[in-house]
Simulated assay, not measured.
Amino acid sequence: MCTYQTQRVELDGAAKGAAGWFTVTAGAVYVDHPFHACHEHTVNIDFTNPSEGPSARTAVELTEESALALIEAIQQALAAAPPGLASATGTSA
């Protein structure tokens, strides 16, 4: 069953789409029927920059298990890095 609930978040990063790299300013996460993945439902994540139009979009469709594993991997990677290293305000070498 689709939830029709979309969680939106402001982001600061970059992604590579069909037209090359673009600045990512927004994200959306929702559970729905996938467009391409061979599953009944997936956790869908869109990385976008609305000000650059529809071509500034990268999307992933993950199983629930894969989405949870990705969350854990992100948390582990951040925990293993020195504090502030991945921060926009962190110091650069």
Rank of each mutant, 00 (worst) to 15 (best):
Q76P: 01
A19K: 10
T23H: 10
D46G: 13
E52H: 15
A80W: 08
T91K: 15
F22A: 04
R57A: 03
T89G: 12
A73Q: 08
T23K: 15
T42H: 06
A18R: 08
E10K: 15
G27C: 06
A15C: 01
N49G: 05
V24L: 08
P34F: 02
Q75I: 03
T42P: 11
T63V: 04
H41K: 06
Q75E: 07
T89I: 12
T63L: 00
G13I: 03
H36M: 08
S66Y: 10
P50V: 04
W21C: 08
T89E: 08
S66P: 06
T25N: 12
E61W: 00
G20L: 03
P34N: 02
T48V: 09
S55V: 15
G90A: 07
A80C: 05
A18F: 03
S51K: 14
T25W: 11
T23R: 15
N44Y: 08
V29I: 11
D12Y: 14
V9A: 03
L70C: 00
R8L: 03
A79H: 09
H33V: 05
F47Y: 12
W21Q: 05
H36E: 08
V31G: 01
E40Y: 05
A77R: 11
A77K: 08
F35Q: 13
F35M: 11
F47S: 03
H33E: 04
T91L: 15
P82W: 04
R57M: 03
L78R: 14
E72S: 08
T91R: 14
A18V: 12
T42W: 08
P83C: 02
A73H: 07
T23Q: 09
S87E: 05
N44R: 12
F47C: 03
P50L: 10
H33M: 10
A81W: 09
S66C: 10
A26S: 14
P83I: 00
T25A: 07
A56Y: 11
E65N: 12
A73P: 11
